[in-house]
């Protein structure tokens, strides 16, 4: 038997509506979701009678869907995919050992939502966009590279590429600062993910109070006005996956 844990919530407020939501959702997705309480915490989980052998993408999507659905009714601490224990005793032990850390994290994210902000270069001429934004496009070739030898010609080509890369990095840094100027008016909770392809300028997540959503959209619209040449997308609200990081005991 395995108990798959989806999320932790602080019990007390909205208990009946959460229970109702979970019951309804359980029927929809044909997974029997259960709740157990431990002091101020509640854990949402399901019981798998058969041994969980292998995870697949469909399971992962379903897991995320469940967390997303519950997060619409209350603040929750999302558990990482694959969080499972083998008995009720283990589940209580988990809650007991990590009680303070769990509760502290829930307080930190209470009433807040996560949004993802991605800014990407458009496929149009990126070099022109960067040059127009940064100005001063002339390449200053160092004297040491003046000459016609193969070595110097080779290094000159490398130097040109290097200069383009440096200007690209400068542009990214400038845009990142403008982004932070806008977002820090709303929150200090901003994390940058490592950009995964060269088209990415910013891949960030922010955690804001629910009522600040419109302000976030205004801020990003200001960014769009400053850098109209890029592609921008905001998604959310997401459960606060990127702002809870607990080393489970």
């Amino acid at each position: 038997m395995s108990l798959i844990i989806y999320a932790l919530i602080q019990n007390g407020q909205k208990n009946s509506s959460i229970k109702k939501c979970i019951d309804t959702f359980s029927e929809e997705i044909e997974i029997n979701l259960k709740i157990i309480n431990y002091k101020e915490l509640s854990a949402v989980f399901s019981v798998e009678v058969q041994k969980v052998e292998k995870a697949d993408k469909a399971d992962f999507i379903k897991y995320a869907e469940i967390i997303d659905k519950i997060s619409k009714t209350c603040t929750l601490l999302p558990m990482r995919y694959g969080s499972l224990v083998t008995s009720y005793d283990d589940l209580y032990a988990l809650l007991d050992k990590n009680y303070s850390a769990f509760l502290e994290s829930i307080h930190k994210i209470n009433g807040k939502e996560e949004y993802s902000v991605k800014v990407l270069f458009s496929s149009k001429n990126q070099d022109n966009i960067i040059n127009n934004n940064l100005g001063d496009v002339s390449l200053k070739v160092p004297n040491i590279l003046m000459g016609t030898s193969d070595s110097k010609q080779y290094l000159l080509e490398k130097y040109k590429k290097h200069t383009i890369e440096e200007r690209r990095n400068k542009y990214i840094e400038k845009l990142k600062l403008s982004f932070l100027d806008e977002v820090r008016k709303l929150t200090e909770c901003v994390e940058f993910n490592k950009t995964l392809t060269s088209a990415f300028i910013i891949d960030a997540v922010v955690l804001i109070e629910k009522y600040k959503k419109e302000k976030l959209l205004e801020g990003i619209d200001n960014l769009r006005k400053m850098y109209p040449e890029n592609n921008i997308i905001i998604t959310g609200p997401w459960p606060p996956y990127n702002f809870v990081n607990i080393n489970i005991q």
Binding site: S123, E229, N230, N231, I232, T235
Partner: peptide, 8 residues
């Protein structure tokens, strides 16, 4: 989940 987009 898309609440804002600009560009392509």
């Amino acid at each position: 989940k898309i609440i804002f987009s600009s560009g392509s």
